[in-house]
Computed example of a mutant assay.
Amino acid sequence: MPDHVRPPVTVLGLGPMGQALAAALLAAGHPTTVWNRTAARADPLVARGARLATTVDEAVRASPLTLACVIDNAAVRQIVEPAAVALKGRTLVNLTADTPRRARTMSEWAGSHGVDYLDGAIMTPAPTIGGPSALVLYSGPEDSWQTHRPTLAHLGGSADWLGPEPGRAAAYDIALLDVFWSAMSGVAHAFALAQAERISPTVLAPYARGIAELLPDLVDDMARRLDTDEHTADVSAIASAATSMAHIIEAAVEHHLDVGAVRAAHAAALRAISAGHGADDFSRMPQAYAVGASTSPGVDVVAP
């Protein structure tokens, strides 16, 4: 498609991800308007042909489609609320990471102001945007998705619509980030424990990668077992896993290391055992976490 027929797009927020989004749109030939609280961040994009708006209202009026990518949905609301009249009849795609509940709240706000709303979750780092490995998930009204799908496709890689429920993309995001940060925290804790035992991280690393390579098959197996409710242990059971976790806790405590994360996993395993599932496969563990979430006092990580 010739450059001159590309629809214009506005990008609000020019952190590393916002800059990557705007750069990808410029590279695809979209007239791109940008806005950021610190205007100087737009300089490299302006040098490439972007137009810098001095206000959010001006930025929104420049395009039928606005992408927002900032720190959280509270910041999105603070930015777009003064421009609600300008946004009316246009589409806001919120690519800001936050909780599913807040995504639904943003959708309700948009609907009350006559703004079409899609929620999005960017699942790959900023350097991938515009390239074949990028992955962005979307949820919200299908007609809005279909209207802007050709433009959003220029962000690169895969663009998957998950359905009309506005919190769906954020729910995927939270679950997948749980995988990532739990795993990375486990790696960091493992290196701390290894160093306490005078094992070089670079010496341990090949063995750690070997452990990590077991995970893809285990992820698929757990998903299958959860979908079919089949938890007969073929190799090892939750009781065995709990014993292994107890050993990790004991060794880490001896070296005065924080054991909060592994202790939480151990507590979930003990709940599963107490419920009579000690001989079952580890795939029973999600149920044990659900029980913990409903019975642990004083746990409330949802900000008002």
Rank of each mutant, 00 (worst) to 15 (best):
T54V: 10
T91H: 05
A74M: 00
V56A: 03
K88A: 15
D98R: 04
A83G: 11
E58N: 00
R102M: 10
A53G: 05
V93M: 10
T96W: 03
A75S: 14
L65R: 06
E108H: 06
V70A: 02
R77A: 15
V93S: 14
P100E: 04
V56N: 04
T99P: 02
P100N: 05
A86F: 07
A50T: 02
W109T: 08
Q78T: 15
A59H: 01
D57M: 00
S63W: 07
L92K: 10
K88C: 14
A50D: 05
V76M: 08
R101T: 13
V60A: 08
P64Q: 05
R102S: 14
A103H: 03
V70T: 10
R77W: 12
A75P: 06
L87M: 15
G49L: 08
E81V: 12
G89Y: 13
A97R: 04
V76L: 07
L87Y: 14
V93C: 12
T91K: 06
L67W: 06
A68W: 07
T55A: 02
V60I: 00
S63T: 06
A50V: 07
S107W: 01
R77P: 03
V76N: 01
L67P: 11
T66L: 02
W109F: 12
T66R: 03
A74W: 05
A97Y: 07
V80A: 00
V76F: 09
A97S: 15
G89S: 13
T91Q: 08
R90S: 15
E58P: 01
D72G: 06
A53P: 11
A103D: 01
A86Y: 12
Q78S: 15
N73G: 06
A53D: 04
E81A: 15
G89N: 12
L52V: 09
D98N: 12
A75W: 05
A86M: 10
L92F: 11
V85W: 05
A97D: 01
L92V: 08
Q78N: 07
T66S: 15
S107A: 15
L87V: 04
L52P: 13
C69L: 08
V70K: 03
V80P: 06
L52N: 09
V56D: 00
A75L: 05
T105L: 03
T66V: 11
C69A: 02
V60H: 04
T66A: 00
T96C: 04
R101H: 13
N94H: 04
A62G: 12
P64D: 13
A75N: 02
N73F: 12
R101M: 01
G89L: 12
R77L: 15
L67T: 01
L92W: 15
T105K: 12
T66W: 11
I79C: 08
M106W: 00
C69I: 08
T54A: 15
